Deep mutational scan, measured.
Amino acid sequence: DEIHIHFNGVTIEFRGLTEEAKKALEEAIKRGASEEELKELARRLIK
């Protein structure tokens, strides 16, 4: 299970995320999180 985020022309790929983690990332994107914020969020979620 993986998710691809297209962000300002950059694709960020995450693997092994739970549904909750995906929802958290989607919410962050909707509120306009920066690419760095998304990566940091993903790091926290994957652990």
Rank of each mutant, 00 (worst) to 15 (best):
L41M: 08
E19V: 12
E37L: 04
L17K: 01
H6S: 11
F7E: 02
E40C: 06
E35N: 05
K30D: 08
A21C: 05
L25M: 06
H4C: 05
E40K: 07
K30T: 10
A21R: 01
G32V: 03
R44T: 09
K22L: 11
E13Y: 15
R43F: 14
E13K: 15
I29K: 04
A21W: 12
A42K: 01
I29L: 09
I5N: 01
E40D: 06
I5A: 03
G9H: 02
G9L: 01
N8P: 04
A21E: 12
E26G: 06
A33P: 02
I5C: 08
K22Q: 10
I12S: 01
R15P: 13
E20I: 08
E36T: 10
S34E: 04
V10G: 07
D1P: 11
D1G: 11
I5E: 01
L41R: 00
L25P: 00
H4P: 00
H4I: 13
L38Y: 01
I12M: 04
K22G: 03
L25S: 00
F14C: 05
E40I: 09
I5V: 08
G16K: 09
G9R: 01
E2N: 12
G9S: 03
E20N: 07
V10W: 02
E37K: 03
E26V: 12
E37V: 06
E36K: 08
A24Y: 12
E27C: 10
A28E: 04
K47E: 15
L41G: 00
H4V: 09
H6L: 06
E26W: 15
R31L: 10
G32F: 08
I12Q: 01
I12V: 08
I46W: 06
L38P: 00
I5M: 05
G16H: 12
G9C: 04
T11K: 09
A42S: 03
E35I: 15
E40G: 03
H6K: 06
E27W: 15
E26Q: 11
R31A: 12
I46R: 06
N8R: 04
E26S: 10
N8K: 04
E26L: 14
V10D: 05
I5L: 11
R31S: 10
R44V: 08
A42T: 03
G32N: 05
E26F: 15
R43S: 05
E36P: 05
V10I: 12
A24H: 09
I29H: 06
E20V: 08
E37A: 05
A42H: 06
I3E: 05
L41F: 07
E40F: 12
E13N: 05
I12F: 04
L45K: 00
T18E: 05
A42C: 04
I29Q: 04
I12G: 02
I46H: 06
L45P: 00
R44F: 12
T18V: 04
A21F: 09
V10M: 12
G9A: 01
R31E: 06
R44A: 09
K39A: 10
N8I: 04
V10P: 02
E36G: 07
A33S: 06
R15L: 09
E40N: 07
E35S: 09
R44Q: 09
H4Y: 09
R31T: 07
E36M: 08
G16R: 04
V10Y: 05
L38D: 00
E20W: 14
E26Y: 15
E35M: 14
